[in-house]
Amino acid sequence: MPSVTLSIESVLAVLDVVGLPALFVVFVLKGALVGKIFPTSVCLSGYVVLTGPTRAGAVSLVVLVTVAHVIGQFAVYTGSRRYGEELVAAVPYLHLEPSSDRFRRVDRWFDRYGDLAVFGTNVIPWSRGLIAIPAGVSAYPRRRYFVHVGSSTLLYHGVYVAVPLFGLAALG
């Protein structure tokens, strides 16, 4: 049993040093659609389970990953504003063509629902971030984009931190 305890302590020590900076990088990539290869919801909830942050720590964690995700999404928004829909082809690990049904569906959602689409697609796991492209192409106002993406992403990440925290509290 001593080696298991030592291993757990080692993992926690590493998380203490590199956990938050690593999460920040992963969530910037996720927001920029590059991180779609990372299971960020699992990483975030797992980090909470392993570190058991205080309430203040949990709030800080939610703010950190939200800011990181919004930075990544804003990069896509800005890039699509400048380069158009073809920016999608330049994003690594994103297998999405502007002519695909999935992309066109997000584009139609944006055209039809505007603000609601920007907010809503950021709380739906499979569509998160894609709205940045039609929003950027259409010159959707930056401030409104930040408000809707920031608030929906804060809500989304808040859930992924709160659920394991409540689970840990129920167990403890």
Rank of each mutant, 00 (worst) to 15 (best):
M1I: 02
P2R: 14
P2K: 14
P2I: 12
S3L: 11
S3A: 13
T5Y: 15
T5Q: 15
S7R: 15
I8V: 13
V11Q: 09
L12Y: 10
A13D: 14
V14Y: 15
L15H: 07
L15W: 13
V17P: 03
G19P: 08
G19D: 08
L20G: 12
P21W: 08
L23H: 11
F24H: 09
V25M: 08
V26Q: 02
F27K: 11
V28I: 13
L29T: 06
K30R: 09
K30S: 05
K30M: 03
K30I: 01
V34H: 12
G35D: 07
F38I: 13
P39S: 10
V42F: 15
C43D: 01
L44W: 12
G46R: 14
Y47N: 02
V48T: 04
V49G: 03
T51V: 10
G52E: 02
P53L: 02
R55I: 01
A56M: 09
G57Q: 03
S60W: 10
L61I: 02
V62I: 11
L64I: 08
V65C: 03
V65P: 04
V67G: 02
V67F: 07
V67Y: 05
A68W: 14
I71L: 05
Q73K: 08
T78W: 15
T78R: 15
T78K: 15
S80I: 03
R81M: 05
R82D: 10
R82Q: 12
Y83R: 15
V88N: 13
A90C: 06
V91N: 13
L96F: 14
S99D: 12
S99T: 08
F103D: 09
R104D: 00
R104Q: 10
R105S: 13
R108M: 10
R112K: 07
G114R: 13
A117D: 03
V118H: 04
F119R: 01
F119D: 06
I124P: 06
W126Q: 13
S127G: 04
R128G: 03
L130R: 04
L130G: 01
I133M: 06
I133W: 03
P134Y: 05
V137C: 06
S138R: 07
Y140T: 01
P141F: 08
P141E: 10
P141T: 06
R143W: 10
R143Q: 02
R144K: 07
F146N: 06
F146G: 12
H148E: 10
V149K: 02
G150L: 04
S151W: 09
S151M: 08
S152P: 03
L155A: 03
Y156A: 00
Y156T: 00
V159S: 07
V163Q: 09
L168K: 07
L168M: 10
A169F: 00
A169C: 00
